[in-house]
């Protein structure tokens, strides 16, 4: 499909090739390359502004890229002129700020897209939403409004809302960064559950311990470039690049304090 014929194994689920993205003068992604295999959990780490969130937003087509290609199952999804809506249905994203719809109940938040986009009936979508909410311990919150929930509960609802579209890939954009420390655990439990199910995930995170635990592969980003990647044990214990060592020393220094 890509014309190289040598690829015997399955196509990568997501692949970024030479993706470049600038906001005005500032280049956020510079010829960025990344491959995520089906069922793989990849964590993106790096300082604020290193481009982690931009990678996720580009894959979801929330940011148009300036150059390069983004493949989903081998199809270029970043081609100008493509209708982004059917592509976005296959890719779920969860944001740092939850972005729940405050004027709608939890159940309506979860069923809105299946009903509007997939044309599911009210009863049908409510039934499958209830199954998901129950699985993540949110069943009794179905009629609550977002501002009546804790941050951890809101973020779990946001994950359920994305899952309701049955995405093939989940992008998690620093989903615990705006939570109180005692609420982080319940959200990470949800991510562990998704990994057990075999969900392909790309996770931008500041939680190094969590990245080490859950990732099949960890990528270190610096100034819009993928500087180094490897299994968690490799990258965290034997970083090859000086920048990676500096970053890890800095963040583990902060967490140890």
């Amino acid at each position: 499909m890509n014309g190289n014929g040598v690829r015997e194994v399955a196509l990568p689920k997501v692949e970024l090739r030479h993706v470049t993205k600038a906001f005005g003068e500032r280049v956020v992604l510079d010829e960025f390359d990344l491959v995520v295999d089906d069922g793989e959990v990849v964590c993106l780490i790096g300082a604020s502004g290193s481009g982690k969130s931009t990678v996720l937003r580009c894959i979801n087509l929330l940011e148009p890229i300036d150059d390069g290609e983004i493949f989903l199952d081998g199809n270029d999804i970043a081609m100008p002129g493509l209708d982004p809506d059917p592509i976005r249905q296959r890719i779920g994203i969860v944001f740092q700020q939850f972005n729940l719809f405050p004027h709608r109940s939890v159940l309506d938040n979860v069923t809105m897209a299946p009903r509007k986009v997939l044309g599911r009936g009210k009863a049908e979508s409510a039934a499958s939403a209830t199954v998901l909410l129950t699985r993540f311990g949110l069943r009794d919150k179905a009629d609550a409004y977002p501002d009546q929930l804790s941050g951890g509960q809101q973020q779990r609802v946001a994950i359920v809302r994305a899952l309701a579209m049955r995405p093939e890939v989940m992008l998690l954009d620093e989903i615990t960064s705006s939570l109180d420390p005692e609420l982080v655990g319940e959200v990470l439990d949800v991510v562990r559950e998704l990994k057990r199910e075999g969900m392909t995930m790309l996770i931008a995170t500041h939680e190094m311990a969590f990245a080490r635990e859950i990732a099949d592969r960890v990528c270190f980003l610096h100034d819009g470039v993928l500087l180094e990647s490897g299994r968690p044990s490799e990258l965290f214990d034997r970083p090859q690049q000086e920048r990676t060592r500096q970053f890890l020393a800095r963040v583990t220094g902060v967490t140890a304090r």
Binding site: D85, R88, G92, K116, V117, M165
Partner: peptide
């Protein structure tokens, strides 16, 4: 972020606006 959330779920810009 509200717009981003709605669009990321596959809703069209019209659906995002009205809903």
């Amino acid at each position: 972020g509200q717009r981003a959330a709605a669009r990321s779920l596959g809703m069209s810009s019209r659906q995002t606006m009205t809903s």
